[in-house]
Structures are given as structure tokens and as C-alpha cells.
């Protein structure tokens, strides 16, 4: 049987169950607000958001692979392209672009022009150190972890801090070789 062709982000998004983005946006805002109340430092909030994102990413990758028909990516370049074009569209209904590749193809930027997390949001003066969308960096890191790619994801630009776009730098730290949970001779 021939392999099933991978589906575009638009095609998947058109076929999944959807909810109003405002419910999603306001719920995320409520989470951030709760974290700011509970935790002393803005830096701790950034870490907690990243951890929450990581927890989501390690589960979300299963659904992504099941619904997208994406086969094994050949390299990191192809992987980030799939994240930007299919992943973001499938879950958030927005498309990202990939730019600023380094020479050895292990570091790039994912640029988001539209981001449903930040509707209605303005950072107050006492939260200028907050990476409000830090959950996204955790999601990417967690999802890639599950497909044997250890990465470091950091924010380079943020509309809430006066930049014109959201830009995430994704850096491949190492490709973890896959290990089977059993030995061949057993």
C-alpha cells in the first residue's frame, strides 16, 4: 500500500474540532495571572510557563503525528518547516515562517506574525521581564524532545515588548539516537 501523503496545515485545521480563540486567549491570560499571583519572581513565571508548555508538547506530538500523516523528517531544517507550516496551523490556526538559518543548519528562527495568545494583552511596568508567550517555547521543546531532538528555544523578538513580530530561536543541541526498550537476543 502506498504511503499516505502528508496533509497541509490548512486541510487539517479545516477538519479538526475547533473552539473560539477568545476562550483560549482569556484562559491563557487567567493562567498567567494566577502564576504572577502565586510566584514571587517574573523569572519563575517564565520557567513555569515553559514547563507547562513542555508538558503539553510531549503529549501534543502524538496527536500531531496521528493527524498530519507527516513521515520521518530528513533533517532539522525539514522538521522546523513542518512545525511552522503544519504544527502552528493545526493547533493555533496561524502560520509561521522559518528564517535566519545558520551555516550548519542547526539554528533558525520561527517568526509568528499572528498570535492568538496575545489578543487584549499589554504588559504592565512590573512585568517587563515576563515572556508572556513562553508556553510556546516549551511546547516546541517538548514536542521535539519526543522525536529525539534536544533543543534550546529562546525568544528573540516579542510584540508585547515593542517588536514588530514574535521571533523564536530554535537551536538543535543534539540528535539523541533512538534506543529500543529491549535487546535483540532476548
Amino acid at each position: 500500500m502506498p504511503p499516505v501523503a502528508p496533509r497541509s496545515g490548512d486541510a487539517i485545521f479545516a477538519n479538526v474540532e475547533r473552539v473560539n480563540a477568545e476562550l483560549f486567549t482569556l484562559t491563557y491570560g487567567a493562567i498567567v495571572r494566577q502564576l504572577l499571583t502565586d510566584l514571587e519572581e517574573v523569572e519563575e513565571v517564565n520557567e513555569q510557563l515553559d514547563q507547562m508548555g513542555y508538558n503539553i508538547g510531549i503529549r501534543l506530538i502524538d496527536e500531531f503525528l496521528a493527524k498530519s500523516n507527516v513521515s520521518r523528517c530528513n533533517d532539522f531544517r525539514e522538521t522546523t518547516d513542518v512545525i511552522a507550516k503544519v504544527g502552528f496551523k493545526m493547533f493555533l490556526g496561524v502560520t509561521a515562517s522559518v528564517t535566519n538559518w545558520d551555516a550548519d543548519g542547526t539554528c533558525c528562527s520561527i517568526v509568528l506574525e499572528d498570535n492568538p495568545l496575545v489578543d487584549f494583552v499589554e504588559l504592565p511596568d512590573n512585568c517587563q521581564g515576563l515572556y508572556y508567550c513562553n508556553i510556546l517555547s516549551g511546547v516546541i521543546r517538548g514536542a521535539l524532545d519526543m522525536v529525539s531532538m534536544k533543543t534550546e528555544v529562546t525568544w528573540l523578538r516579542d510584540v508585547l515588548r515593542g517588536d514588530d513580530v514574535f521571533e523564536l530561536q530554535v537551536k538543535l543541541l543534539k540528535h539523541v539516537p533512538e534506543e529500543y526498550p529491549y535487546k535483540d537476543d532476548e
Binding site: A21, E22, F24, T27, M52, I56, L60, F120
Partner: peptide, 29 residues
């Protein structure tokens, strides 16, 4: 200023999974 930004029409959507994962984290936290 965020108040200058026009309000969305409220028609934009995200996947139910995205909301479910987020809500799950809210509960677990």
C-alpha cells in the same frame, strides 16, 4: 496602546485540542 488596537470580530478559532491541553495544564498546576 492595547486600547488603540481594534477588537477582533470574535470569529477566529483554535483547535479544541489546543484548548484541552491548555486547560489540562491549568488543572494540573
Amino acid at each position: 496602546n492595547v486600547l488603540d488596537k481594534p477588537l477582533t470580530k470574535g470569529k477566529q478559532e483554535v483547535s479544541l485540542s489546543a484548548f484541552a491541553f491548555l486547560f489540562s495544564e491549568l488543572v494540573q498546576y
